[in-house]
Design a protein around this nucleic acid. Structure first.
Lengths: 299, 299
DNA sequence: TCAATAGTGTCTGTCAGACACTATCGA
DNA sequence: TCGATAGTGTCTGACAGACACTATTGA
């Protein structure tokens, strides 16, 4: 027994190689709200939700599309690692960064045991400039949609089971790459507690378990857009209310009524004297973000 | 370049020791809703929120109180590691288990680089029996309260800063141990994005950064109780509506109005024919949980 | 009887959803 | 003029918060 050891003495004698240790990586979900080009001079361009993916140039999963990410260095925090990878990839600084979830299945990477901490970054696409990196073959923005296809509720003897099938579609901005993934989520709730399992039935050309991570990130974004001001991080400093509404709509994947939307966000937005012009129709006022009074701590 | 290698060939030659790797642990927040004893035969016993802590018998942080937890084995998933530690400690099976957050500051453990994945478990205190383990000196349930003490909002040149000071109090069931922690949370929101930092100004006798982890867990529990049925996992199979209301009240740390509460949870609860008697007042009906119809996926 | 809890009814103001309407620009 | 978007007004039903009331037990 080393009971009477001081903490300092203990640390000196501690053998850091006493246990087999997994590798730890960060994986980044970089979202941006961009506009697709519109030919009609009168119509507004449509907004789309974009996600940054990288085609792996090396094994494992060579040739497949993956989330930007990399190993956490031994002397940097998780947040620092996430921020470093984000800057290496996108060269932006004004970003919202949020830790999402840590993925730890034993066989999620064929090399060795890899535990991945996933982060979500929301960037203003106008302040953006994606860089090619030496290690990777290509980085591309993909237009993302994530839609419920089928839902099934089963009453068990002592609980319920809900199964949901989602379709995750990714189309690269140049239209050359199209990826379709099917995500299957099962929530069982019975006397033995609650268990959620998620599985990519079909992962298109997505590497590792990244299809699952993307799906999880979109779910989190959808949930959080309802009760936080997270969506403003996808906006430029000045924006019209219609642009803001479009961002909400592409995240939630449903249409909103204009009058109601404006009432809802009225206290989070500040009118300016500037206008967006030359649009072939009535010019619209530009607004900027202004945090509302809120009592509650939101995590 | 090993471009033309197959994936199988690549994996054979992969050197798992190529990078310095951190250790990975799981830390468990085990919550239960228990009742304090009441002397007056007529009064109902008051509910309290309890958390399981362990006094460390070895260095580092010898003698301090810590969350139950331990290293993740190389061949078990994170969820498995969490479940294993929970069963070793509490011997219960019908639990709600949810991953919370992964803590990765470089110096959070003095031994070596340790990344900790925190989990929250909600257990029914009646089905519970805490076990002493050989490695630890003591395991005790602590009555937890977590309360906002001070709040300060500052308007910056290009954003806002909100600071909050919370008091985290832990009192062991036997009354012998009392811990007071002060948690300081700062949220800055400006042109460079949003950053939240949390810091335990005073951590009483809590080991490592566990005071922070506890605070985070309570915040998550408080948030989730408002929009999910998470609280039912702290209840036995049969319960009165007043008991249920008390559990909501101790989690939210505020009193609720009976009539309104009952309306709110009416569709999540199923009436039985049984009654709770011998209480010195009108007997109350017993209910059981019944999942409501909900469309949305909740994560 | 009475202290205490069980359980219900109802008023209020707020707010989300739906829809209809007016205003303004440029080709 | 007209096609398109900008922006506003109002009705409705649902619901959260507050409060008052009745019912039932055991010592």
């Amino acid at each position: 027994m080393k009971k009477q050891q001081t903490e300092a003495e203990y640390i000196k004698t501690y053998d850091v190689n006493q246990y087999d240790r997994p590798s730890v990586t960060v994986d980044m979900l970089v979202f941006a709200a961009d506009e697709a080009v519109e030919e009609n001079y009168r119509k507004l361009p449509e907004k789309v939700l974009r996600l940054l993916l990288i085609r792996r140039s090396e094994n494992p999963a060579q040739g497949k599309w993956a989330l930007p990410g990399g190993f956490v260095k031994i002397d940097e925090s998780l947040d620092d690692a996430a921020m470093r990878r984000l800057q290496e990839e996108t060269n932006v600084k004004n970003v919202y960064l949020e830790q999402l979830y840590t993925w730890g299945a034993v066989d999620r990477d064929p090399r060795t045991r890899v535990i991945s901490v996933s982060y979500m970054a929301l960037v203003d696409s106008k302040a953006l400039q994606v860089q090619a990196r030496e290690r990777v073959a290509e980085a591309k923005w993909f237009h993302v949609t994530y839609r419920l296809q089928q839902e099934q509720k089963t009453i068990l003897a002592n609980g319920t089971e809900i199964q949901r099938w989602y379709m995750l579609s990714l189309v690269s901005s140049d239209g050359k790459d199209t990826i379709q993934c099917e995500i299957h989520i099962t929530q069982v709730e019975d006397a033995n507690g609650t268990r959620t399992t998620r599985e990519a039935i079909k992962d298109g050309d997505i590497a590792f378990d990244h299809a699952n991570i993307i799906a999880y990130g979109i779910e989190r974004l959808r949930n959080k857009v309802e009760y936080t001001d997270i969506a403003f991080h996808l906006m430029p400093p000045l924006f019209t209310l219609t642009e803001l509404q479009q961002v909400y709509e592409i995240i939630l994947d449903k249409e909103l009524l204009k009058a109601n939307f404006r009432r809802k966000i009225a206290d989070r937005v500040l009118e300016t004297n500037e206008y967006k012009k030359d649009a072939g129709h009535r010019p619209s006022k530009l607004f900027r973000y202004c945090a509302a009074e809120e009592g509650r701590l939101i995590i």
